[in-house]
Amino acid sequence: MYNYTILDDKELTGLLQNGDELAFTEIYNRYWTKLFAVAANKISDLDEAEEIVQDIFVSLWKRRNELDTINTLGPYLAVSVKYRVIKVLAKRGHQQKYSDYTQHIASLTDDTTQQWLDFEELRGRLATFVADLPEKCRLVYRLSRESGFSQKQIATELGISEKTVEAHLGKALKTLRTRLSSFLL
């Protein structure tokens, strides 16, 4: 039976390679606080710093058979923590960029949706205003704007002069502009 507290890192590493759980416990007790201090110094979230240190020890236990090249455990574990901290900070940076990107896309989507709703409301108002036009005016407007007829075609279709078509279309557009401008303000 060993007195684990007096063993050096090389001896503890040798015992750890053989699966000695008490050697692992001694390493854990010897280095946990130091490693936590290193992690907590770089990462403001203490829970995350603790998780980093715990992951280092889990990894140490899983890779215990590969430790024959390690002479001093302290520097090895400290470097491991630093690399994990760098990895976590890089991940945070990527997450922040992704979050910023998704917020930007969401704002564009939200804006597009709002524009579509505004357009639909405007189109509904326009339809109501067109329906309120006098009959001939409304008919001339629809043939011109909705069916794409020229003034000459409208005149032929309705059996009226082109000047009359022009007058009805001018009256319709003026009325609609006036009513829509009050709506858009």
Rank of each mutant, 00 (worst) to 15 (best):
Q17S: 08
Q17F: 10
N18D: 13
N18K: 15
N18Y: 12
G19W: 03
G19Y: 05
D20W: 02
D20I: 01
D20S: 05
E21T: 13
E21W: 13
E21C: 06
E21H: 14
L22W: 09
L22A: 14
L22P: 00
A23V: 07
A23F: 05
F24I: 03
T25N: 15
T25L: 13
E26M: 05
E26C: 08
E26K: 06
I27H: 00
I27M: 10
I27C: 03
Y28L: 15
Y28G: 04
Y28P: 13
N29T: 09
N29V: 05
N29A: 11
N29E: 12
R30D: 00
R30M: 03
R30V: 03
R30N: 04
R30G: 06
R30H: 04
Y31W: 06
W32A: 11
W32M: 12
T33G: 10
T33P: 10
T33N: 13
K34C: 07
K34M: 10
K34N: 11
L35A: 00
L35E: 01
A37F: 06
A37I: 09
V38I: 14
V38A: 08
V38N: 05
A39Q: 03
A39R: 01
A39G: 04
A39F: 01
A40Q: 10
A40F: 05
N41E: 15
K42S: 15
K42D: 15
K42W: 12
I43W: 04
I43A: 05
I43Q: 02
I43N: 08
S44L: 11
S44Y: 09
S44V: 07
S44W: 08
S44I: 07
D45A: 09
D45T: 08
D45K: 14
D45C: 09
L46Q: 14
L46T: 15
D47I: 13
D47Y: 12
D47N: 15
D47K: 14
E48R: 14
E48G: 08
E48L: 13
A49G: 02
A49L: 05
A49D: 01
E50H: 07
E50D: 13
E50A: 08
E51A: 08
E51H: 08
E51M: 10
E51Q: 12
E51D: 15
I52N: 03
I52W: 00
I52C: 00
I52Q: 02
I52R: 01
I52F: 06
V53G: 02
V53Y: 00
V53L: 03
V53D: 03
Q54W: 09
Q54F: 11
Q54D: 11
D55Q: 10
D55F: 05
D55P: 06
D55Y: 07
D55C: 07
D55I: 01
I56P: 00
I56H: 02
I56A: 08
I56G: 00
I56M: 05
F57T: 05
F57N: 02
F57K: 04
V58C: 08
V58G: 03
V58L: 13
S59H: 13
S59W: 10
S59M: 09
L60N: 01
L60A: 00
L60E: 04
W61I: 05
W61F: 07
W61G: 01
W61Y: 09
W61S: 04
W61E: 01
